[in-house]
Design a protein around this nucleic acid. Structure first.
Lengths: 236, 236
DNA sequence: TTTAATAATTGTACCGGTATAATTTAATAA
DNA sequence: TTATTAAATTATACCGGTACAATTATTAAA
C-alpha cells in the first residue's frame, strides 16, 4: 500500500477513534510529518485525499479541521466501486435473476465500444437492503475483458472478483442519472406501483487503461434511494 | 490566477480546439513541462486537476489520454457552484417568487448552525431552461454572512454575487438527494401533475473556513433533470 | 476598552531532484 | 514467424527545499 494512502487511513482512524466532530481542529501539518516520519509533500497528499473524501477541510493560515455530514444511511455517489462498500455496514444482498452470455443491445455495445456481434456477460439482479428491495440492476460485461462469471460471483460482488479474481485494475466511471416513472415489470420487482417514481443510474466503468468493461443500468426504489455528495471546491 | 490552474485551462483549451476524442493520446509530461516552462510538480498538479474534472486520464508507463463523455445536456454534480455554470451554454433564467428576511425553519437553522431567532434571507425562485421549467428552489442564506441581497441579484446568480460582490470564498458543500412524488403546489410551479416524480437536492454550502452560509432545497422537474458524474478512482 | 499595526502561525504554490512501477518498444531466441 | 527477454519510455511516489498568502495572536496606539 502506498505511504500516503496508509497515512490517510491512519488519520481517518484517528478521527474515528476519538469521535471528533465537525469543526474540531486537528494537529498541524508539522506534527503529522513528525508523527509519520514522512515528507511534507506526502502528508499534503494524504490530507488532500481526505479533503476530497470529505473527511477534513483545510484552511490556510488556520489549520486542519474535521468535516462531518450529519445524515446517515445515504449512498455516496463519489466512490465509484458500486455501493457494496458504502453500505457495508448495512446488509445488502443480491438475488440473480438472469446470467448468460449473449450479444449486447445496440446501446450496450455502443457504451462498451463493441459491435452487436461481440459477446457479453449479461447479469440481471435485484438487490435488497434491510430485507427491502433497493434496486433492479442490469449489467453488460465485455466478455473479452471479463472472461468468466458465474451466479455465485454475481450473488456476491462482481467488482471484487474483477479486481481480485481477475487482477484487473478499475480506473474511472461515467455515471448518468435521471428520474422517470416505473413501468409494470420494474414495479413488480421493486414492490411498487406502475408510474411510481424511479431513479435510474446508468454507469460505464473503465479499466485504468481506458477500456470500458461494464455498462449497467440500475433502477432504484425511490423510497430507499438517498444519495449524497461531499463536494470540494477542487480548485476551479 | 494560479499557475497550475492556468496551465490546466490551457491544456483543456488545447483539447477543445483540436476536438480531440476519447482515447486520443496527448503530448507526454516532459513536453508540457517544456511548453509551459513550469516544474514537473506543477504540471502534475494541473493534470491531476484535469483528471478529477474528467477531461483526461493518465496511464502510468503509457501516457496521457483524452476522456470524453458522450451525452450532452446533463447537469454535472461534481462542480458545486450551482448549475448556472454547467449549463451556461443553455439559457437558464430565474423568476423570483419571494425574497425577504425572516426567521429560519428549524431544519434550515440546524443546517446553518443557527437558532430560530437568527435572521436569514429567504429566496424562492423558479428556474427555466429553454423556456421550460427546470426546478423550484428555496434557499436560506445566513444573514450574518450574506449581509445583503435583492431581487436583481437573485434573478441573476447569487453565488457570483457572494463571491465577487461580497468577496466571500466558497469552499465546499454537502449535497443530499432523494426522489419522491410531487405535491400539488410543486406540481403547479413545475407544470406537472400531483404525484409525478420529483428529484430533490438539498445542499449546504460552506465558506472555506467551514462556516455554512446557504441551505437550499431544489425540486427538479423530472423530465429536465439529467445528471452526470465523471468519477475517478481517487486513490482509495 | 477599542482599534490599528505588527509579528507569528500555518497551509499552499512552486521548484527540482531520485527512485520506482507500469507499459510499450526493441532486441533476441526459439 | 512467434514467443521471450531486455531496454526504453512514461507517469507516479516520495523527498525536501524556498517563497508566499491567509489567518490568528500579539503588541502598540488611540
Amino acid at each position: 500500500m502506498l505511504k500516503y494512502q496508509q497515512i490517510a487511513d491512519e488519520i481517518e482512524q484517528y478521527i474515528e477513534e476519538r469521535e471528533l466532530q465537525q469543526g474540531h481542529k486537528l494537529p498541524v501539518l508539522e506534527e503529522w510529518i513528525a508523527r509519520f516520519e514522512a515528507s511534507k509533500s506526502t502528508l499534503t497528499k494524504a490530507l488532500e485525499l481526505l479533503e476530497r473524501k470529505g473527511v477534513i477541510f483545510q484552511v490556510r493560515g488556520s489549520g486542519i479541521f474535521v468535516r462531518r455530514h450529519k445524515r446517515k444511511g445515504y449512498i455516496s455517489l463519489t466512490s465509484n466501486q458500486g455501493f457494496k462498500k458504502d453500505l457495508e455496514d448495512f446488509k445488502v444482498s443480491s438475488k440473480v435473476l438472469e446470467l448468460d452470455i449473449r450479444k449486447p443491445t445496440g446501446e450496450a455495445a455502443s457504451n462498451l465500444n463493441l459491435t452487436t456481434e461481440d459477446d457479453v456477460y449479461y447479469v440481471k439482479r435485484v438487490r435488497y437492503i434491510f430485507e427491502q428491495t433497493l434496486c433492479l440492476e442490469e449489467s453488460y460485461f465485455s466478455k473479452s475483458i471479463v472472461t468468466y462469471l458465474n451466479r455465485e460471483i454475481a450473488e456476491d460482488s462482481v467488482f471484487q472478483y474483477v479486481k481480485e479474481g481477475l487482477g484487473l485494475k478499475v480506473g474511472f466511471s461515467d455515471q448518468y442519472m435521471h428520474v422517470d416513472k416505473l413501468n409494470a415489470e420494474e414495479a413488480g420487482y421493486l414492490g411498487l406501483k406502475k408510474n411510481d417514481p424511479k431513479f435510474v443510474m446508468e454507469s460505464i466503468f473503465y479499466l485504468t487503461n481506458g477500456q470500458p468493461f461494464d455498462f449497467s443500468r440500475v433502477t432504484y426504489n425511490y423510497i430507499q434511494s438517498q444519495f449524497f455528495i461531499q463536494a470540494g471546491d477542487q480548485g476551479y
